Amino acid sequence: MPYTNEEGGRLNNFAQEPKVYRAEPPTAEQKRNYIILGVAATVLVGGLIFVAFSVSNLS
């Protein structure tokens, strides 16, 4: 762990920095999964809005 001594004998610790790496673009399978999850999320939110709207207008 890197550290330095300051005046008066105090230690000053520094956090270790993570290695930097380049992000890779998503594969075709990952893109397909993103589309499927997006459609599923849209259907879920749409269904919740529909249920909330239909329950609020029962009376």
Rank of each mutant, 00 (worst) to 15 (best):
Y3L: 09
Y3I: 12
T4V: 09
N5E: 00
N5T: 06
E6K: 11
E6R: 12
E6A: 15
E6N: 14
E6G: 15
E6W: 00
E7A: 07
E7N: 07
G8I: 02
G8W: 02
G9D: 03
G9S: 08
G9Y: 06
G9R: 04
G9L: 06
G9C: 06
R10H: 08
L11I: 01
L11W: 07
L11Q: 13
L11V: 10
N12Y: 07
N12D: 02
N13H: 14
F14A: 11
F14H: 05
F14G: 12
F14S: 12
F14E: 08
F14I: 05
F14Q: 15
F14R: 09
F14K: 10
A15G: 05
Q16Y: 00
Q16E: 03
Q16C: 01
E17P: 00
E17T: 00
P18Q: 06
K19R: 11
K19Y: 02
K19D: 10
V20Y: 00
V20G: 03
V20P: 00
V20T: 07
V20C: 00
V20I: 07
Y21C: 11
Y21K: 13
R22N: 14
A23Q: 09
A23H: 08
E24M: 15
P25V: 09
P25N: 12
P25D: 09
P26D: 13
T27Q: 10
A28W: 06
A28T: 13
A28P: 07
A28H: 02
A28K: 12
Q30V: 11
K31P: 06
R32V: 05
R32Y: 03
R32T: 10
R32S: 14
N33V: 10
N33I: 09
N33P: 02
N33M: 14
Y34I: 08
Y34F: 07
Y34N: 15
Y34C: 11
Y34P: 01
I35T: 13
I35L: 14
L37Q: 10
L37A: 08
L37M: 08
G38L: 04
G38S: 05
V39A: 04
V39Q: 03
V39F: 04
V39I: 12
A41F: 02
A41Q: 12
A41N: 01
T42L: 11
T42D: 08
T42A: 14
T42M: 14
V43H: 00
V43K: 04
L44S: 10
L44E: 02
V45W: 03
G46I: 10
G46T: 07
G46E: 04
G47Q: 06
G47F: 04
L48Y: 07
I49L: 14
I49T: 04
I49E: 02
I49Q: 02
